[in-house]
Design a protein around this nucleic acid. Sequence first.
RNA 1: UGGCCUAUGGUGUAAUUGGUAACACAGCUGAUUUUGGUUCAGUCGUUCAAGGUUCGAGUCCUUGUAGGCCAACCA
Length: 561
Amino acid sequence: MSEETKSLNFLEHIIEDDLNSGYSKEDLRFRFPPEPNGYLHIGHTKAIGISFGLGEKYNAPVNLRFDDTNPAKEEQEYVDAIKRDISWLGYQWESELYSSDYFQQLYDWAILLIKKGKAYVDSLSSEEIAELKGTPTQAGKNSPYRDRSVEENLDLFERMKKGEFEPGTHVLRAKIDMASPNMLMRDPLMYRIMYKSHHRTGDDWCIYPMYDWTHGESDYIEQISHSLCSLEFKPHRELYDWFLDQVVEESRIRPKQREFARLNLSYTIMSKRKLLKLVDEGVVSGWDDPRMPTISGLRRRGYTPAAIRKFIETVGVSKRDNVIDVALLEFCIREDLNKTAPRVMAVLNPVKLVITNYPENEEEWLDAENNPEDEAAGSRKVPFSRELYIEKEDFREEANRKFFRLKLGGEVRLKNGYIIKAESVIKDENGEVTEIHCTYDPLSRSGSGTEESMRKVKGTLHWVSVKHAVPAEVRVYDRLFSDEAPDGHKDKDYMEFLNPESLTLVNAFVEPSLKEAKTGERFQFQRLGYFNVDDDSSADKLVFNKTVGLRDTWAKQQKKG
RNA sequence: UGGCCUAUGGUGUAAUUGGUAACACAGCUGAUUUUGGUUCAGUCGUUCAAGGUUCGAGUCCUUGUAGGCCAACCA
């Protein structure tokens, strides 16, 4: 194996530079810090892939740290889902940690800051604080409480902790610079009063630390070397460093925050809030609806961890805003499934085909290759008989030479079976074809070795024997939004772009071997696409999800007309 | 009336750090094919603009332009 020397992304350059300037490889340590307030989506996968990927590359530990400083939004359900998803992607964290583990340490440090005159209790209302904060173009003004004595601050802060005050009456703020061009440096809040029971600490605390105060110090406690986050945190870096300055010791690792551009995918949205709305309003069946860009949605849809990881690797890392073409994601799953998914036959939109010269009660079991890409996959038997289902779209009474499928007087091969010739049709009162009558060449059976079996005919159709067909529900998905950038319009809400045809229920017929298919198993329905067995599937009712269609150059040609 | 960040084919990413733009996806053409799949061969197309430094600039400098982020007791 010739290992290609892959070029480094800018984060790897930063790490390499650190390593070259004396940083020890043993000191490398990363973290993934989700807030347990929703499910992970494909965008998070990028962040996961970056930090865990770096961990794998440098053989460095990666902590899973739940950033749980806001009990108003966070729940155990989300913690469990996040762990499940990361594990499913195939990543292993060094330690499962929680910001809430550090509440006491954070509190102690806060007192230290007060004593150093770097923090004070403000007793303004939130509106007044916002008012005095100024705007990006206008400096803020000092709070009248800014110069309280250390003693008074200590006393007030302790009483905040004891629960003597109502929410909103007091907050602890860092004393930095109300005139800073960086709004985040204008005396940011460190603590607020909140009487909410926390999913881990219960009712131990009634003051909770804010993100900025918590995050960097948590990184420091865990001795994270590189704290990687998305671009919108860039302005926070100055504050991150300021907070660190208050507590770092020379001898310990000082974490550095670096920012990368988050992932955007065409035809979808990536905001947890907006995804939650789809769930709450019943637009989708849940966080794991196969149309959702969540990891659990993609999993249920039939995506593999390998495909998702390949996708993340392929999109790369940089600092520019980007929109990845969803076609790349689809390419990645096809590439994986092409090599691994067993081929089977299923007819989604059936029309009956009768082979008039095939004996009435005969049936034969034909050999069918399970995967032409993988010889080890072996073969199976599929039943053939006089009456079959084929796809409606595979037949036309008349068609030009470009139509490789079945037409009256034309020949086609039935996959793994015989060459047939269409002779006539039966129609209903509306003129719809209800039955196609054809004849077959008994000597043309696939693999029989006869001269007739070697004959080349232009088209090959998939089919299912009527008598042996197993009914199944197939859920055919299309993109959830019809617009390339659903939340990229200033004048229109993303909900306006919902695709009414994102889910189509189809009553299909599948070959009998599928009767034993287990939940989660993935198949290629030949000539149609990749499908997997849905969680809703049961012994008496098979349910499949369409993961993704095959590349379809025929459809493209037709569109061009 | 501010601060910060980013500009490379349609999309995304790279370029030995100043040495003559490449890889993937998408598109297109053809070959192979018992999946209009796969595979194979080929093809299209790129450095935001204007100046400057230099033998030489995607890379450095200046000035513009465009886009993004920042005013939650959210993370």
